[in-house]
Amino acid sequence: MHFIPDALDDYVAAHSEKEPQLLQQLTRETYQKILQPRMLSGHYQGRILSMLSKLIQPKTILEIGTYTGYSALCLCEGLKKDGLLHTIDINEELEDFQRSYFDKSPYGRNIKQHIGNAIEIIPKLTTKFDLVFIDADKPNYVNYFNLIIDKMNSGGIILSDNVLWSGKVIEKLQPNDESTKALIEYNKLLAEDPRIETVLLPIRDGLTISRLN
């Protein structure tokens, strides 16, 4: 979902940092072989994730929703040399695909994959995180937030993707639309929780930056 005209959106992407060759290859193979390739973060958002990670310079990252590994590789670009990124995905069929690209990158040893239900996995993680990226099933966003908030280091950053949900968050809510309902609740939570300060950016399908006070 683009919230500015396509021509202007193309200009923005063209005047941003170029997409690394490995990520170009990952994009092509995702579109060739994997269902729902639009779930990929893509060039422009990927460069935003990379830039934010480089500014934060995290030692520990948690990603909820790996898909084919594109965003994980972008986030690793700012990871400290001895840092670790934990990434969780429920689809075990993508594990080998993800790992093949992780190992082609300079960050293979810095990425730990977890396959299964994030609601069950997160409580078992003993790490405190500097950066968290939430990009998974929307009805569980509030649950993910509640699970990770006490696992954040002071000043830690939570990035939340798809928070505008193609603009549905301001439209009349349909009775069976669980994802939109959940995102409306989640956005309200982020705006009102006194433990964090939040800015919602109209980038692609909406990206929220929340900083732990």
Results as ranks from 00 to 15, higher is better:
L55F: 09
I56K: 13
I61R: 03
I64F: 03
T66H: 06
G69T: 08
C74S: 09
C74M: 13
C76D: 01
E77N: 01
G78T: 03
G78A: 06
K80S: 13
K80I: 11
G83N: 09
L85M: 07
T87F: 05
T87D: 08
I88N: 05
D89M: 05
N91A: 11
E95N: 08
D96F: 14
F97G: 01
F97S: 01
K104C: 08
Y107L: 04
N110G: 06
Q113W: 04
I121Y: 08
P123S: 13
K124P: 06
T126V: 14
T127E: 15
D130T: 10
L131T: 02
D137L: 14
D137P: 08
N143D: 15
Y144V: 00
I149N: 11
G156H: 00
I157M: 12
I158H: 07
L159V: 10
L159I: 15
L164Y: 10
L164N: 05
L164M: 14
W165K: 09
I170P: 05
L173P: 02
L173H: 04
P175N: 07
N176E: 15
D177L: 04
S179C: 09
L183C: 00
L183K: 02
I184V: 13
E185V: 00
E185T: 04
L189I: 00
E197M: 11
L201P: 03
